[in-house]
């Protein structure tokens, strides 16, 4: 019951989901729709309860123990509270609901707090891509030299400056992307594909079972 039955479930579900791919009949299509669009999503909803609890415990723990900088965990809870209030505030009747709707508008919270934070974190990459290139692109070995030379050529070929240095540069860049780059990406993808399929098959066969955790 504890060990074997979950493996039987994984085997059955895996086989069914694989076979449905080959059957165009409406019965099979319906099975796929119910599984992917309903059941699997519904099951995952329940895990969120666990995740939120984990998030809560992590921060409560910091606040309780007055760990250095515990105030930040309070800020995290304030963030959750704001968003929840804005998202569900319109369901609170009367004056309070109106107040919340006016000052904690969900769209404003999203557009002026969540979205800018997201965009700014993302834009850190502009700085990091520069520092990573500076530090790592050193001609230590043949391979490293190849990496840095290709990266530099492609970088130059992407801006007008490169084209004004040599007219053919954008064409060279295009060629590198279309042939050698494509070749390596294909090679990686084929290997990864075989590895992924083998892992999937091992899951279905019950050979790979560490995702089930302890006994």
């Amino acid at each position: 019951m504890r060990r074997t039955f979950p493996l039987v479930i994984a085997f059955t579900m895996g086989l069914l989901m694989m076979i449905q791919y080959f059957i165009p009949h409406p019965i099979s299509q319906k099975f796929y729709k119910i599984m992917v669009q309903q059941w699997l999503i519904i099951i995952s909803i329940f895990f969120y309860v666990f995740a939120w609890r984990s998030f809560g415990l992590y921060h409560i723990n910091k606040i309780k123990r007055r760990k250095e900088g515990w105030w930040a965990s309070v800020v995290a809870f304030v963030g959750v509270f704001f968003m929840l209030l804005a998202g569900f505030g319109d369901r609170i009747p009367g004056g309070i609901g109106h107040f919340i709707y006016k000052y904690f508008n969900f769209d404003d919270l999203y557009n002026y707090m969540f979205a800018p934070l997201q965009a700014t974190m993302f834009s850190l990459l502009a700085f990091f891509i520069a520092s990573a290139a500076f530090r790592a692109f050193k001609a230590r070995t043949m391979e490293a030299t190849l990496l840095l030379v290709t990266a530099t050529i492609v970088m130059l070929g992407r801006v007008p400056l490169g084209a004004s240095m040599w007219k053919g540069l954008p064409k060279v860049v295009e060629w590198i992307l279309m042939y050698p780059n494509m070749a390596a990406q294909r090679g990686i993808m084929i290997g990864v594909g075989l590895g992924m399929i083998a892992t999937s098959m091992k899951i279905i066969l019950g050979i790979e079972r560490s995702y089930l955790g302890g006994e």
């Binding site: 990091f128 990496l147 590895g195």
Partner: peptide, 20 residues
């Protein structure tokens, strides 16, 4: 490419599936 430049070692592509 980014892991290769910023990390000490990188387990690439299919190597990840050979790991276990």
């Amino acid at each position: 490419p980014f892991f290769i430049t910023a990390c000490d070692y990188t387990i690439m592509g299919e190597e990840l599936y050979a790991a276990s």
